[in-house]
Design a binder for these strands. Sequence first.
DNA 1: CGCGCAATCTACCGAACGGTCGGATGGGCC
DNA 2: GGCCCATCCGACCGTTCGGTAGATTGCGCG
Lengths: 212, 212
Amino acid sequence: MRPQGPRNTRQRILEAAETAFGNEGYSGTRLHHIAERVGVQKASLFHYFTSKEHLYCAVLDEGAGQAEEIVKHVLESEGEPIDKIRALLRVCIDMVVTYPERTKIQLRQSLGDAPPGFQPTDASERMLCLVADLVASDELAKSLSPIDPFAFVLGLMGMVAFFFTSGPVVAPSWFGQQDAASVRDRIERHVNEVMERCLDGQSHAAKSSAVL
Amino acid sequence: MRPQGPRNTRQRILEAAETAFGNEGYSGTRLHHIAERVGVQKASLFHYFTSKEHLYCAVLDEGAGQAEEIVKHVLESEGEPIDKIRALLRVCIDMVVTYPERTKIQLRQSLGDAPPGFQPTDASERMLCLVADLVASDELAKSLSPIDPFAFVLGLMGMVAFFFTSGPVVAPSWFGQQDAASVRDRIERHVNEVMERCLDGQSHAAKSSAVL
DNA sequence: CGCGCAATCTACCGAACGGTCGGATGGGCC
DNA sequence: GGCCCATCCGACCGTTCGGTAGATTGCGCG
């Protein structure tokens, strides 16, 4: 009997696992369900990955590897640091829209979800270093002054991630009606708007503290 | 034998459960651990709460109830809608700093974590309606124009939540060194800065799309 | 005291889960 | 055909987890 489905079983397992880990969390996903969705017996998972934890790491590796490539490509391009930030934010939105489950996994991980003895991927560490260098550049600090570049970048990233993954749950009426593309468009415009407003005009610190 | 510890066992269970659900997620928390931390036998949990799911709901109820009170108080105060948003953001920061685990639970829930047959608390629904009304007010739309008020509020909330819960994990070197109070102060200033910059100055939509 | 009642304990259960074992299947290759 | 090897399967194992049953303790009160 032809083993059902095309022969990229390993890849299909990875994809199903990504979906499962994203939607159910690490301890919430049952290997049984992954196998079911792939259309394979649970034991077959252990043929490709030695344990649940290894499968999880493989999923993360895959994502981190892709992300590293993209980020590297953006950072190697010509342009001022602030433009690289702009580009980075755009690819960030792309990633979140294209791979929502992957984003969920990342968010979950930042909340503390992970197998007991887990440590970050090499790829993700390298990527983080690249971005950190950019964020720490004097040139960027000058463009943003007096805004803290780190807070700026992390805040906008968080905003994007939160929007797409949590928005539909918090306010389904707002997101549910329209197709993903138009939501994406609206969000991207908003984030850009906020970003550009931060980029010019001077400090409002006095005004802010007056409100306190 | 005097049952060990002070007699507010129920409350202590709730607190331990909040910590556990926040840090481990719903399917990640073990009732055994909660009992252990309270200093009580696992079976005792079932004396106060009929099931894991009920315990989870009780934790959420507690949080939602407190939050509703605070939000109601803010919304009933005098002032323009935009000032209420400012105040709301400030209490939001307060909540996130004071009850980090509660925030994590909320974030997890928006990612899809929850017992199988779960539906939102009445309190949280009421609170959401109150805020939704405010966000939908014409007056606020005018203050923010052309920024979408909904995107504005949701985005800033997401930014705050992401900062405190995920920031320390994504970049421990940035957060770990200083005490919570100073981190809080820095974040609050940043969020206020971003907010105030959004509040004045006109649209940068043209500039933004030029970047695309 | 002695009764009731709430709270807590010890001990256990059934189900589900991660993981293992040994065998079946079937295609490629000589 | 005959062999190999990757792939996949059905059945099973040990542990853990949520949940239950029943006994025990100790306090309040007539």
